[in-house]
Every structure is written in structure tokens, then in C-alpha cells.
Design a protein around this nucleic acid. Structure first.
Length: 249
DNA sequence: CTAAATGTTAAGCC
DNA sequence: GGGCTTAACATTTA
């Protein structure tokens, strides 16, 4: 479920619920004040990267699906209790499972840097570039997963963007030529939107070139697989066509 | 059947 | 306090 484009799909599917008023709420979250929810209308439904935001008059519910989270609209899962279930006066229900929920008090514009979300209209590539230039020793495989720079980018997008740009995942940010760094920022968004279209068409996996793959589709040699960087996330790359910039650490 | 994974956060340690 | 490691969460698929 995670990664920014999947959240955009949820936001679009849930958009008809904006403006509806909560009639009943239940679930097994420890932080949600279920008693306070009935009577509150949804002011907006938004996303920031991998966060799904339900803005209410008194606070905002921040839902993060982590690895295994899921949701159902106007139906429920059979064998799983709701972490949060919302029923509405106008009809319909939103149900969320195995997700991490937080309450956000106060102004959302204060809480979120909207321009850091690669899926957002407000996305500012110049801001991402500036942050990258301030961390020259960081590996690119870690930088792409940094949610303060590329909010919404996940491990699949990371592997595919680096393969597409022919950048070795263990390259350091500071060693990338200026044009390559700009391409990295551009592709983080570009690939995420292609991911969105493929996901909507249920053809995402067949477009993977590196992620979970064993053979390089460009070179026909074996891909490498390791848990690289400080993030120690699964990384797939080709030693032949992905150029390593910077020192071998 | 077991392991590993589209992710984040908190606790513990040096 | 910083920076690192580990664990916890908990579902689905290979």
C-alpha cells in the first residue's frame, strides 16, 4: 500500500467523502478519540507523501500505512478489525487497517512542507536540490528515501529511478555532476507519476526493470542485490550500466 | 512453512 | 546529546 502514488489513488477514491459528517466511529487505535468524532465534518482529504490526512474542525487524523496497512471504502475486511472505521450521516464508510494513526493539532500548513511531496502541485525541485547539496556525503540510495526531501518516494521508486538514470545506488550525492543531480530530482517526480498511472491500470509490476529483478534488461547480466546505505533497504542494481560516482565506501 | 518485504518510530547503548 | 542498532508493529506473498 505505501509509496506516494498509492496514497494519491486513495485520496481520489475518498474525495467524495469530503464535506460529509461523521455519524459513528470505532476502531482499535490507542490515540484516536472515537467519542469526539461524531458530528465533525471532513473539511478536506489530503496527502503528503505517504501520509493520508483527514482534516476535521478540531484536529487532523494522520494515517500512515507503513508496510502492511490497507483500507476499504463502503465495505469491510472480513478477518481484520478496523484500526479506524468511520460511518457518515450522508451514508458510506471509510475503514482503515493495520495503520499508524496520529492526531495533528493546529494548522496543517504549519505541520507540513507541502512542496517536499513529489506528487504535489506545490512540489519545488529547487528546494530538493538545495537540501541535497547540503548533504554531499549521503549515499543516493539513502537520499531518495529521505522523506523530508522526497516525500512519497519509497523503495520501489528508489530502485527504478536509479536504474533509469544509470546511477549506482552507492554513489555519494556530492559526487554527482550537477546535471545528474537535477535529473535525479526530476525523475523522482516523473517516475512517481508513471508509477501512479501503471498502478491505476494494474500493470505496475510488469514495468519494473530492476526492483525484484535478477537480470539487467539492458546488459543481460545478473543484477546485484544488497541492503545498502544507512536505511539498509533492499537495493537492486547493475554493476555494468549504473555508474558509481564518488568514493567506494 | 518460513522468510522477507512498498515503512516508521521508539528504546537502548556507547 | 548524537549517532547507531535493534525491536516492534503485523499482513501478504514467494
Amino acid at each position: 500500500m505505501p509509496e506516494g502514488p498509492s496514497l494519491v489513488i486513495l485520496k481520489e477514491l475518498a474525495q467524495p467523502f469530503a464535506g460529509r459528517t461523521i455519524a459513528a466511529a470505532h476502531g482499535n487505535s490507542k490515540v484516536v478519540p472515537y467519542d469526539e468524532l461524531p458530528g465533525q465534518p471532513i473539511l478536506s482529504l489530503r496527502t503528503w507523501g505517504k501520509h493520508f490526512l483527514i482534516e476535521l474542525p478540531l484536529f487532523t487524523l494522520r494515517i500512515h500505512f507503513l508496510m502492511f496497512g490497507s483500507y476499504r471504502i463502503d465495505e469491510r475486511k472480513e478477518n481484520s478489525p478496523e484500526r479506524l472505521g468511520l460511518a457518515f450521516e450522508e451514508g458510506g464508510e471509510l475503514n482503515f487497517y493495520t495503520c499508524a494513526i496520529q492526531l495533528i493539532e493546529g494548522d496543517l500548513d504549519q505541520a507540513y512542507e507541502w512542496h517536499a511531496d513529489v506528487m504535489a502541485d506545490a512540489w519545488k525541485p529547487a528546494a530538493a536540490l538545495k537540501k541535497l547539496r547540503a548533504m554531499p556525503d549521503t549515499l543516493v540510495c539513502d537520499a531518495l528515501l529521505d522523506q523530508t526531501i522526497f516525500s512519497g518516494v519509497g523503495n520501489i521508486i528508489k530502485n527504478e529511478v536509479l536504474f533509469r538514470l544509470k546511477i549506482h545506488p552507492a554513489s555519494t550525492v556530492g559526487a554527482l555532476p550537477a546535471t545528474k543531480l537535477r535529473e535525479l530530482v526530476k525523475q523522482a517526480r516523473q517516475y512517481s507519476f508513471e508509477f501512479l498511472e501503471w498502478k491505476k491500470a494494474f500493470v505496475l509490476k510488469q514495468h519494473w526493470l530492476a526492483h525484484t529483478k535478477r537480470i539487467c534488461p539492458r546488459c543481460n547480466i545478473a543484477l546485484h542485490k544488497a541492503h545498502l546505505g544507512k536505511t539498509r533497504r533492499r537495493t537492486f542494481w547493475c554493476e555494468r550500466c549504473q555508474k558509481r560516482y564518488g568514493p567506494v565506501l
